[in-house]
Protein backbone atom coordinates (compact mmCIF):
# COMPACT_ATOMS: atom_id res chain seq x y z
CA UNK A 1 0.00 0.00 0.00
CA UNK A 2 1.02 3.61 -0.49
CA UNK A 3 2.20 5.56 2.48
CA UNK A 4 -0.05 8.06 4.24
CA UNK A 5 0.00 10.42 7.19
CA UNK A 6 -1.27 9.04 10.47
CA UNK A 7 -3.79 11.37 12.07
CA UNK A 8 -4.88 10.92 15.69
CA UNK A 9 -7.83 13.22 16.37
CA UNK A 10 -8.92 13.82 19.94
CA UNK A 11 -12.51 14.75 19.10
CA UNK A 12 -15.02 13.74 16.44
CA UNK A 13 -14.94 17.34 15.13
CA UNK A 14 -11.18 17.08 14.59
CA UNK A 15 -11.71 13.77 12.82
CA UNK A 16 -14.37 15.24 10.54
CA UNK A 17 -12.03 18.11 9.62
CA UNK A 18 -9.25 15.64 8.79
CA UNK A 19 -11.64 13.63 6.61
CA UNK A 20 -12.82 16.84 4.91
CA UNK A 21 -9.16 17.46 4.04
CA UNK A 22 -8.95 14.19 2.14
CA UNK A 23 -8.27 11.72 4.92
CA UNK A 24 -10.10 8.47 5.28
CA UNK A 25 -11.53 7.41 8.64
CA UNK A 26 -10.35 4.17 10.23
CA UNK A 27 -11.97 2.29 13.08
CA UNK A 28 -10.85 -1.35 13.34
CA UNK A 29 -9.05 -1.05 10.03
CA UNK A 30 -9.76 -4.54 8.65
CA UNK A 31 -11.80 -3.30 5.68
CA UNK A 32 -9.62 -0.22 5.27
CA UNK A 33 -6.46 -2.31 4.96
CA UNK A 34 -8.19 -4.50 2.35
CA UNK A 35 -8.97 -1.39 0.29
CA UNK A 36 -5.51 0.15 0.79
CA UNK A 37 -3.64 -3.04 -0.10
CA UNK A 38 -5.57 -3.40 -3.37
CA UNK A 39 -5.05 0.34 -4.09
CA UNK A 40 -8.81 0.79 -4.37
CA UNK A 41 -8.25 3.93 -2.32
CA UNK A 42 -5.02 5.91 -1.96
CA UNK A 43 -5.70 8.58 0.65
CA UNK A 44 -3.10 11.13 1.77
CA UNK A 45 -3.96 10.42 5.39
CA UNK A 46 -5.65 7.84 7.59
CA UNK A 47 -7.65 9.22 10.51
CA UNK A 48 -7.64 6.89 13.50
CA UNK A 49 -11.03 7.18 15.18
CA UNK A 50 -9.80 5.01 18.07
CA UNK A 51 -7.85 7.96 19.43
CA UNK A 52 -11.21 9.61 20.28
CA UNK A 53 -12.29 8.57 23.79
CA UNK A 54 -15.71 7.27 24.73
CA UNK A 55 -16.91 5.63 21.54
CA UNK A 56 -16.53 1.98 22.46
CA UNK A 57 -19.10 1.42 25.19
CA UNK A 58 -22.35 -0.53 25.04
CA UNK A 59 -24.83 1.08 27.43
CA UNK A 60 -28.37 0.26 28.46
CA UNK A 61 -30.47 3.40 28.60
CA UNK A 62 -34.16 3.64 29.54
CA UNK A 63 -35.09 3.93 25.89
CA UNK A 64 -32.95 1.03 24.70
CA UNK A 65 -29.42 0.16 23.79
CA UNK A 66 -26.65 2.62 22.90
CA UNK A 67 -23.76 1.02 21.06
CA UNK A 68 -20.58 3.01 20.40
CA UNK A 69 -19.32 2.85 16.83
CA UNK A 70 -15.95 1.60 18.07
CA UNK A 71 -17.35 -1.34 20.05
CA UNK A 72 -15.81 -4.44 18.49
CA UNK A 73 -17.99 -7.20 17.13
CA UNK A 74 -16.60 -9.37 19.97
CA UNK A 75 -17.77 -6.74 22.50
CA UNK A 76 -21.23 -6.92 20.95
CA UNK A 77 -21.37 -10.71 20.65
CA UNK A 78 -20.30 -11.24 24.27
CA UNK A 79 -22.38 -8.51 25.93
CA UNK A 80 -24.83 -10.23 28.29
CA UNK A 81 -27.59 -7.60 27.98
CA UNK A 82 -27.47 -7.82 24.19
CA UNK A 83 -27.46 -11.60 24.38
CA UNK A 84 -30.50 -11.74 26.68
CA UNK A 85 -32.66 -8.91 25.37
CA UNK A 86 -31.57 -8.53 21.74
CA UNK A 87 -30.38 -12.04 20.84
CA UNK A 88 -30.69 -11.43 17.09
CA UNK A 89 -27.95 -8.77 17.33
CA UNK A 90 -25.76 -11.03 19.44
CA UNK A 91 -26.17 -13.98 17.04
CA UNK A 92 -25.43 -11.82 14.00
CA UNK A 93 -22.31 -10.39 15.68
CA UNK A 94 -21.05 -13.85 16.67
CA UNK A 95 -21.48 -15.06 13.08
CA UNK A 96 -19.17 -12.43 11.61
CA UNK A 97 -15.90 -13.59 10.02
CA UNK A 98 -13.40 -15.18 12.45
CA UNK A 99 -12.37 -14.58 16.10
CA UNK A 100 -9.30 -12.63 14.93
CA UNK A 101 -11.47 -10.26 12.88
CA UNK A 102 -14.23 -9.94 15.48
CA UNK A 103 -11.61 -8.85 18.05
CA UNK A 104 -10.62 -5.90 15.86
CA UNK A 105 -13.54 -5.09 13.54
CA UNK A 106 -16.04 -2.57 14.88
CA UNK A 107 -19.77 -1.94 14.73
CA UNK A 108 -19.29 1.27 12.73
CA UNK A 109 -16.86 -0.40 10.36
CA UNK A 110 -19.17 -3.34 9.80
CA UNK A 111 -21.98 -1.01 8.72
CA UNK A 112 -19.71 1.00 6.42
CA UNK A 113 -18.04 -1.95 4.62
CA UNK A 114 -17.73 -1.74 0.88
CA UNK A 115 -19.11 -4.56 -1.27
CA UNK A 116 -17.18 -7.80 -1.71
CA UNK A 117 -18.13 -8.04 -5.44
CA UNK A 118 -15.11 -9.46 -7.27
CA UNK A 119 -15.39 -6.86 -10.02
CA UNK A 120 -15.43 -4.05 -7.47
CA UNK A 121 -12.46 -5.57 -5.59
CA UNK A 122 -10.38 -6.10 -8.72
CA UNK A 123 -8.12 -3.04 -9.12
CA UNK A 124 -7.91 -3.72 -12.88
CA UNK A 125 -11.67 -3.55 -13.41
CA UNK A 126 -13.40 -0.19 -13.73
CA UNK A 127 -16.98 -1.14 -12.97
CA UNK A 128 -19.99 1.14 -12.56
CA UNK A 129 -19.17 1.70 -8.91
CA UNK A 130 -15.72 2.94 -9.84
CA UNK A 131 -16.89 5.37 -12.50
CA UNK A 132 -16.97 2.85 -15.35
CA UNK A 133 -19.65 2.15 -17.92
CA UNK A 134 -20.93 -1.30 -17.02
CA UNK A 135 -21.71 -3.71 -14.21
CA UNK A 136 -19.67 -6.68 -15.37
CA UNK A 137 -21.70 -9.04 -13.18
CA UNK A 138 -24.61 -8.74 -15.62
CA UNK A 139 -22.93 -10.56 -18.50
CA UNK A 140 -20.13 -12.06 -16.41
CA UNK A 141 -19.89 -14.14 -13.24
CA UNK A 142 -22.69 -13.36 -10.83
CA UNK A 143 -22.81 -16.42 -8.60
CA UNK A 144 -22.62 -14.31 -5.42
CA UNK A 145 -24.64 -11.32 -6.59
CA UNK A 146 -28.07 -9.91 -5.85
CA UNK A 147 -31.37 -11.63 -6.56
CA UNK A 148 -33.39 -8.64 -5.35
CA UNK A 149 -33.01 -4.88 -5.57
CA UNK A 150 -30.14 -5.02 -8.04
CA UNK A 151 -29.52 -2.68 -10.94
CA UNK A 152 -27.73 -1.01 -12.44
CA UNK A 153 -25.10 -2.47 -10.05
CA UNK A 154 -25.75 -5.92 -8.58
CA UNK A 155 -23.71 -6.08 -5.37
CA UNK A 156 -24.95 -7.65 -2.16
CA UNK A 157 -24.38 -5.80 1.09
CA UNK A 158 -21.96 -7.70 3.34
CA UNK A 159 -23.06 -6.33 6.73
CA UNK A 160 -24.67 -8.88 9.07
CA UNK A 161 -25.12 -6.20 11.73
CA UNK A 162 -27.00 -4.13 9.16
CA UNK A 163 -29.60 -6.91 8.95
CA UNK A 164 -29.84 -7.15 12.72
CA UNK A 165 -30.13 -3.40 13.28
CA UNK A 166 -32.77 -3.11 10.53
CA UNK A 167 -34.85 -5.87 12.13
CA UNK A 168 -34.70 -4.18 15.54
CA UNK A 169 -35.54 -0.75 14.08
CA UNK A 170 -32.24 0.87 15.10
CA UNK A 171 -31.00 4.38 14.39
CA UNK A 172 -27.51 5.22 13.16
CA UNK A 173 -26.05 8.18 15.05
CA UNK A 174 -23.48 10.36 13.30
CA UNK A 175 -21.58 13.54 14.13
CA UNK A 176 -24.27 15.44 12.20
CA UNK A 177 -27.64 13.72 12.74
CA UNK A 178 -29.60 10.60 13.52
CA UNK A 179 -30.47 8.37 10.58
CA UNK A 180 -33.21 5.72 10.91
CA UNK A 181 -31.49 2.59 9.64
CA UNK A 182 -33.97 2.05 6.79
CA UNK A 183 -32.71 5.39 5.41
CA UNK A 184 -29.03 4.57 6.07
CA UNK A 185 -28.55 1.90 3.39
CA UNK A 186 -29.23 3.00 -0.19
CA UNK A 187 -29.82 1.06 -3.39
CA UNK A 188 -27.50 1.46 -6.41
CA UNK A 189 -30.38 2.95 -8.43
CA UNK A 190 -30.45 5.83 -5.93
CA UNK A 191 -26.68 6.22 -5.46
CA UNK A 192 -24.26 4.19 -7.54
CA UNK A 193 -21.15 5.38 -5.68
CA UNK A 194 -22.15 4.71 -2.08
CA UNK A 195 -23.93 1.99 -0.11
CA UNK A 196 -25.18 4.38 2.55
CA UNK A 197 -26.51 7.90 2.89
CA UNK A 198 -23.55 9.32 4.85
CA UNK A 199 -22.48 12.74 3.57
CA UNK A 200 -18.82 13.55 2.96
CA UNK A 201 -17.03 13.83 6.34
CA UNK A 202 -20.07 12.48 8.14
CA UNK A 203 -18.93 9.83 10.63
CA UNK A 204 -20.89 7.10 12.37
CA UNK A 205 -20.51 7.57 16.13
CA UNK A 206 -22.93 4.91 17.32
CA UNK A 207 -26.15 3.00 16.96
CA UNK A 208 -29.23 3.17 19.19
CA UNK A 209 -31.64 0.27 19.39
CA UNK A 210 -35.14 0.96 20.75
CA UNK A 211 -36.91 -1.44 23.09
CA UNK A 212 -39.70 -2.18 20.57
CA UNK A 213 -38.43 -5.70 19.87
CA UNK A 214 -36.61 -6.24 23.16
CA UNK A 215 -37.15 -9.79 24.37
CA UNK A 216 -38.73 -10.95 21.10
CA UNK A 217 -37.91 -14.47 19.97
CA UNK A 218 -35.05 -14.24 17.52
CA UNK A 219 -32.93 -16.25 15.16
CA UNK A 220 -30.17 -15.28 12.76
CA UNK A 221 -29.33 -18.00 10.27
CA UNK A 222 -26.45 -17.71 7.79
CA UNK A 223 -25.73 -20.00 4.88
CA UNK A 224 -22.08 -20.09 3.79
CA UNK A 225 -20.06 -22.24 1.40
CA UNK A 226 -17.43 -22.88 4.06
CA UNK A 227 -18.67 -23.64 7.54
CA UNK A 228 -15.77 -22.14 9.47
CA UNK A 229 -15.39 -18.62 8.10
CA UNK A 230 -16.94 -17.20 4.96
CA UNK A 231 -19.12 -14.49 3.48
CA UNK A 232 -22.82 -15.23 3.50
CA UNK A 233 -24.60 -16.74 0.53
CA UNK A 234 -27.87 -15.80 2.21
CA UNK A 235 -28.93 -14.88 5.74
CA UNK A 236 -32.22 -14.37 7.50
CA UNK A 237 -32.90 -12.58 10.73
CA UNK A 238 -36.34 -13.40 12.11
CA UNK A 239 -37.99 -11.75 15.13
CA UNK A 240 -41.30 -13.03 16.47
CA UNK A 241 -43.68 -11.52 19.01
CA UNK A 242 -46.03 -14.19 20.25
CA UNK A 243 -49.54 -14.02 21.65
CA UNK A 244 -49.87 -17.48 23.13
CA UNK A 245 -49.02 -19.78 20.25
CA UNK A 246 -49.79 -17.31 17.47
CA UNK A 247 -47.48 -14.73 15.96
CA UNK A 248 -48.72 -11.24 16.77
CA UNK A 249 -45.91 -9.46 14.92
CA UNK A 250 -42.84 -10.45 12.95
CA UNK A 251 -39.74 -9.01 11.37
CA UNK A 252 -37.86 -10.77 8.58
CA UNK A 253 -34.65 -9.28 7.17
CA UNK A 254 -32.60 -10.98 4.47
CA UNK A 255 -28.88 -10.54 3.94
CA UNK A 256 -26.54 -11.56 1.12
CA UNK A 257 -29.28 -11.30 -1.49
CA UNK A 258 -29.65 -7.56 -2.19
CA UNK A 259 -27.51 -4.41 -2.31
CA UNK A 260 -28.91 -3.45 1.10
CA UNK A 261 -30.13 -5.47 4.09
CA UNK A 262 -33.55 -6.46 2.74
CA UNK A 263 -36.68 -6.35 4.85
CA UNK A 264 -39.32 -8.73 3.56
CA UNK A 265 -42.80 -7.56 4.52
CA UNK A 266 -44.15 -10.40 2.34
CA UNK A 267 -42.54 -12.94 4.66
CA UNK A 268 -43.67 -11.01 7.74
CA UNK A 269 -47.28 -11.03 6.52
CA UNK A 270 -47.06 -14.77 5.90
CA UNK A 271 -46.25 -15.23 9.59
CA UNK A 272 -48.62 -12.81 11.31
CA UNK A 273 -51.62 -14.45 12.97
CA UNK A 274 -50.25 -17.95 12.35
CA UNK A 275 -48.93 -20.50 14.76
CA UNK A 276 -45.53 -21.64 13.63
CA UNK A 277 -45.16 -25.01 12.01
CA UNK A 278 -43.03 -26.16 9.11
CA UNK A 279 -45.62 -25.34 6.41
CA UNK A 280 -45.99 -21.79 7.74
CA UNK A 281 -42.21 -21.33 7.90
CA UNK A 282 -41.88 -22.60 4.33
CA UNK A 283 -44.65 -20.28 3.15
CA UNK A 284 -42.76 -17.35 4.71
CA UNK A 285 -39.59 -18.49 2.93
CA UNK A 286 -41.44 -18.65 -0.41
CA UNK A 287 -43.02 -15.25 0.20
CA UNK A 288 -39.57 -13.78 0.93
CA UNK A 289 -38.34 -14.61 -2.59
CA UNK A 290 -41.63 -14.10 -4.44
CA UNK A 291 -40.26 -11.06 -6.24
CA UNK A 292 -36.74 -12.39 -6.80
CA UNK A 293 -35.15 -11.77 -10.19
CA UNK A 294 -32.08 -14.03 -10.19
CA UNK A 295 -29.21 -13.60 -12.63
CA UNK A 296 -27.59 -16.22 -14.88
CA UNK A 297 -25.53 -17.94 -12.16
CA UNK A 298 -27.36 -17.26 -8.90
CA UNK A 299 -30.70 -18.97 -9.42
CA UNK A 300 -29.67 -21.32 -6.58
CA UNK A 301 -30.12 -18.43 -4.16
CA UNK A 302 -33.90 -18.54 -4.59
CA UNK A 303 -34.48 -22.00 -3.03
CA UNK A 304 -31.52 -21.40 -0.69
CA UNK A 305 -33.03 -18.19 0.67
CA UNK A 306 -36.43 -19.88 0.96
CA UNK A 307 -34.90 -22.48 3.24
CA UNK A 308 -32.71 -20.02 5.14
CA UNK A 309 -35.87 -18.10 6.06
CA UNK A 310 -37.70 -21.33 6.87
CA UNK A 311 -34.93 -22.46 9.23
CA UNK A 312 -34.65 -19.07 10.93
CA UNK A 313 -38.43 -18.95 11.49
CA UNK A 314 -38.46 -22.45 13.00
CA UNK A 315 -35.45 -21.68 15.20
CA UNK A 316 -36.96 -18.39 16.38
CA UNK A 317 -40.10 -20.31 17.35
CA UNK A 318 -37.96 -22.77 19.29
CA UNK A 319 -38.71 -25.61 16.88
CA UNK A 320 -36.23 -28.02 15.40
CA UNK A 321 -35.25 -27.21 11.84
CA UNK A 322 -34.19 -30.05 9.62
Amino acid sequence: MNNFDWVQPKTIAEAATAVKNGGVAMSGGIELLCLLKEHLIEPPSVVNLKSIPGMRSIDVAGSGLRIGALATTTDLAENSVVRNDFPGISQAAASIASPQIRNVGTVGGNLCQRPRCWYYRDPEVKCLKKGGQACYAVAGNNEYHAIMGGGPCHIVHPSDLGSAFLAYGATVVTNEREIPIQNFFVLPKDDIDHENSLRPAELVTGVTVPNDWKGARASFFKSKERESFDWALATALVLLKMNGSTVSDARVVLGGVAPIPWRSTEAENALKGKSIEDSVALAAGRAAVSRATPMSENRYKVPLTTNVVRIAVLQAAGLKAE
Binding site: G29, I30, L33, V46, S98, V104
Partner: peptide, 21 residues
Amino acid sequence: GNCGGCTVMKDGKPIYACMML
Protein backbone atom coordinates in the same frame (compact mmCIF):
# COMPACT_ATOMS: atom_id res chain seq x y z
CA GLY B 1 -6.89 -11.65 6.88
CA ASN B 2 -8.07 -14.89 5.30
CA CYS B 3 -5.67 -17.63 6.40
CA GLY B 4 -4.67 -17.07 10.04
CA GLY B 5 -0.95 -17.74 9.50
CA CYS B 6 -0.06 -14.38 11.07
CA THR B 7 -2.19 -14.80 14.21
CA VAL B 8 -0.66 -13.16 17.30
CA MET B 9 -2.07 -12.23 20.70
CA LYS B 10 -2.54 -8.49 21.12
CA ASP B 11 -3.35 -7.43 24.68
CA GLY B 12 -4.59 -10.94 25.38
CA LYS B 13 -6.74 -11.46 22.29
CA PRO B 14 -5.93 -13.19 19.00
CA ILE B 15 -5.74 -10.90 15.97
CA TYR B 16 -4.41 -11.04 12.40
CA ALA B 17 -1.08 -9.15 12.45
CA CYS B 18 -1.35 -8.63 8.66
CA MET B 19 -4.57 -6.63 9.07
CA MET B 20 -3.34 -4.21 11.70
CA LEU B 21 -1.01 -1.28 11.16
